[in-house]
């Protein structure tokens, strides 16, 4: 401590800007500064800039000077029936997919909470999908569903004699997207639930067994209370993520057939990078951001509750 004070004194006594800058009380902020600068340039500035753009009439395709139009694009987005249709599609996909992930993830967690041969290897295999890239999963399922030579179609043809085009109907296409998304993310739910399951004290189950409590009663009174906040966390986290679903849908169906699987994420992309309605896409993106912030607040609330429970 004394030696560093001496060094600092020597630096100060040598004088100059560098010495002032490297003074001990400034070293902390100095070390954090690069990260803050990057954060500002890469996140905060574009965020503010695009928010500002949503109040102007501007297309990135043209070199015209933007006109201030106030809330016109927010009004247009909110009153656009297409936007509401895309929100509806997104809601259907989100609710179906998150429900499927929850059920499958929960069942997998129950399975893996027990000890059995090859458990570790199987657990690794089950976790693999969520480590894959979204693009790879999209391409994989596209080939899987391909009606002429795809595995699903070939399997169905063995029974019906006819090829099966899952993505040929709106309902089939939504099911196809939900299966792909659920396949990828159920392991994530499983991991969270598994963490809850292993944290249940063994003596509670032993006591319940002595009381001859049924399996359902044991689950209701012991297991579920321990995992319910983790389940809520999983639901919220997966809802937020699925709400922004883009990659899998774009590769698998490109929003089709027609617009049956076009999520709000795909629609924002079209507005921004295909139609080049920059301001309108920015306004819609901020409405989506608002929805995600609401969901995130719920998520943080659940996290805090879980932390209190653990304490």
């Amino acid at each position: 401590m004394a030696s560093s004070a001496v060094v600092a004194h020597e630096i100060r006594s040598e004088g100059g800007f560098l010495a002032w800058l490297l003074a001990p009380q400034r070293r902390g902020p100095l070390l954090v500064a690069p990260a803050l600068i990057v954060l500002f340039l890469m996140n905060i500035f574009p965020l503010l800039w695009s928010f500002g753009l949503s109040f102007y009439n501007y297309s990135a395709k043209k070199r015209d000077v933007p006109d201030f139009v106030g809330l016109r694009f927010f009004e247009r987005v909110i009153t656009d029936p297409t936007v509401w249709e895309r929100f509806k599609t997104t809601a259907i996909i989100v609710s179906s997919s998150v429900l499927a992930q929850l059920v499958i993830g929960f069942l997998l967690a129950l399975l893996f909470s027990k000890q059995f041969p090859l458990r570790r290897i199987l657990l690794m295999l089950v976790l693999t999908p969520m480590m894959l890239s979204l693009v790879a999963v999209g391409v994989f399922f596209k080939l899987f569903y391909e009606p002429t030579f795809g595995l699903v179609s070939q399997a169905v043809a063995m029974f019906t004699g006819d090829r099966f085009a899952l993505l040929g109907t709106p309902t089939g296409a939504i099911i196809g997207v939900v299966i792909a998304d659920a396949w990828m993310w159920s392991p994530f739910v499983m991991l969270l639930v598994l963490a809850g399951l292993v944290s249940v004290p063994k003596y509670l189950y032993e006591a319940a067994e002595i009381d001859r409590a049924s399996a359902w009663r044991r689950f209701q009174t012991i297991t579920f209370p321990y995992i319910k906040s983790l389940l809520l966390l999983a639901v919220l986290f997966r809802t937020i993520e699925t709400f922004k679903l883009f990659d899998v849908v774009y590769i698998l169906t490109e929003g089709g057939p027609g617009s049956a699987t076009e999520t709000i994420g795909v629609y924002v992309y079209r507005l921004a990078f295909q139609y080049f309605r920059t301001s309108q896409s920015a306004a819609l993106a901020y409405i989506i951001l608002f929805v995600v912030i609401v969901l995130t607040s719920l998520y943080l609330y659940a996290v805090n509750r879980r932390a209190q429970e653990v304490d």
């Binding site: 179609s153 099966f164 085009a165 040929g168 296409a173 089709g256 057939p257 027609g258």
Partner: peptide, 9 residues
């Protein structure tokens, strides 16, 4: 056409 035509792909 092959059944992929029924999916619009």
């Amino acid at each position: 056409m092959p059944p992929v035509a029924r999916t619009g792909q």
